[in-house]
Design a protein around this nucleic acid. Structure first.
Length: 270
DNA sequence: AACACCGCCTGAGCGC
DNA sequence: TGCGCTCAGGCGGTGT
């Protein structure tokens, strides 16, 4: 489940493969993953990739033509660089680009919650991203307070709202609430200044730790050793409902907030 | 107008 | 062994 740290990790690993490279061709194996016409021009064929940017969970490949391709990974999306040509493609590969260096760039997305959105200009990208809140890695207490102000819903629901804060998903929302000592069901507008400050610090700290670890879920995926639970060791609450809190040993509670499974410590999160 | 909620998808994990 | 069930969740669309 890619959230901001996993998407940032993908961005960083993609840069050396793509930036400065020209896209020489594309194979569209499933056109429905592309919003609008899946033409070569829209998919940057003939363009040299000038940079790869990220805002929240969205990736954008910038072509020197000025055109842009936005990639959203959704639940199960991957962008894979396949230098050597394998005999067989993995399953659920929807788009394959070829670069001037002879590499293949695959967009794979089994559940198809993700997708590709071509845009005609960098201005269109900025317009698109302006409807998102500030990037969660750069969040500060003032910006978070502005996003929570006047919202009566649960603080976790607000954290998951990409127009409030871009990049937080279910895992890191729970982890951030735990770190801040805030019960996720609290009404957002009832947090005091001190609590908003703690929450902003917690969101940043949790995400930075995950980014430097290469993304907790992604690393789990890359290991591919069939070793379940390896990455869970890093999480305080996510996926640990019913188990003992690592701080106070109280049994962690599970519930549903904003249609998402939510785990919290009834003692640490007052 | 803010917010809740649905439905899209596949694979893992489970009980039988 | 294998079947059928539940669960996982980002996010656009629709309902209240």
């Amino acid at each position: 489940m890619p959230e901001l740290p996993e998407v940032e990790h993908v961005r960083r690993t993609l840069v050396p493969h793509l930036v400065g490279q020209r896209l020489t061709g594309v194979t569209v194996r499933r056109a429905t993953v592309v919003a609008g016409p899946a033409t070569e021009r829209a998919l940057l064929v003939g363009s040299t990739i000038a940079g790869i940017e990220r805002h929240g969970k969205q990736l954008a490949m910038l072509g020197d033509s000025g055109r842009v391709v936005v990639v959203q990974l959704g639940m199960s999306g991957q962008v894979l660089c396949d230098a050597e040509s394998r005999p067989e493609l993995p399953t659920h590969v929807h788009i394959v680009w070829r670069t001037s260096r002879g590499a293949s760039i695959l967009f794979r997305d089994p559940r198809r919650f993700g997708g590709i959105t071509p845009l005609e200009s960098r201005e269109a990208l900025l317009a698109r991203w302006s409807s998102l809140g500030p990037d969660a890695l750069a969040i500060n207490p003032g910006a978070l307070a502005a996003g929570l102000r006047g919202s009566r819903r649960a603080v976790k629901a607000a954290l998951l709202d990409q127009s409030v804060l871009a990049g937080v998903g279910n895992i890191y929302a729970d982890e951030a609430c735990f770190r801040a000592g805030i019960r996720p069901r609290r009404s957002a507008h009832r947090l005091n200044v001190c609590e908003v400050e703690r929450l902003a610090e917690a969101v940043g700290a949790v995400l930075r730790a995950a980014v430097s670890a290469g993304g907790s879920t992604l690393r789990d995926y890359l290991d591919a050793d069939g070793k379940p639970g390896e990455y869970r060791r890093e999480h305080s609450v996510y996926g640990r409902g019913g188990e003992a809190c690592r701080v106070c040993a109280t049994r962690l509670r599970t519930g549903t907030i904003a249609q998402r499974t939510t785990v919290w410590c009834p003692r640490c999160q007052g």
